[in-house]
Nucleic acid binder design. Sequence first.
DNA 1: AGTGCGATTGACT
DNA 2: GTCAATCGCACTA
Length: 205
Amino acid sequence: MNMTALGRISLLKAEFYNRDPRRVARALLGKLLVRKTPRGILAGRIVETEAYLGQGDAAAHSAAGKTLRNAVLFGPPGYAYVYFIYGNHYMLNISGQRKGVGEGVLLRGLEPLEGIEWMQRHRHTKSLTELSRGPGRLAAAMRITRSLNGLDLCAKGPLWLGTAARPTGKIGVSVRIGITQDAHRLLRFYERGNPFVSGPKSLST
DNA sequence: AGTGCGATTGACT
DNA sequence: GTCAATCGCACTA
């Protein structure tokens, strides 16, 4: 992929994110995540997502109400909610639905397309398959930290999303990974068989 | 001011 | 397959 091709990709607008997060999570599969850094462009295809609901979902960060940390989830749709966890990892979410409702979608897997050498440096590995498989790795590869929390993703700034680079394969659905509350809900979506989908094999094929 | 724990990863058996 | 590391945040006092 080159700059010309990136230029032709159309930006996902707020309306895309302004609906049920389950629909958004599914629709995000195959979409392009683009990161503009001073060093150059990083980009990849989204292959795994999880939806977190605003009401009745105990696993969502918003479940206990609005706080300083999760405030972005309660804001308008299409904004980056980036948080730090386990003392090591950043995770990228996109705020969903209307203002006042704490919903969002977690990005868990990315198929690298552009800037792979930079991603390898960010991840301190030469491996391709481990580059952006899993939410923490995805964020590290794309150099996403808390400094991007609250960023409007519906403008072509340092981070934005674009229309599909190519059609999406078969979509799988499963329970969400790594949560204890509301663990039975089928709110994880992924492209079946894609090597950049995280989790056990039983949840990736 | 102290406590408990988490939407994970990487190293190791 | 198991398991410890690591620290910001929310909550209690």
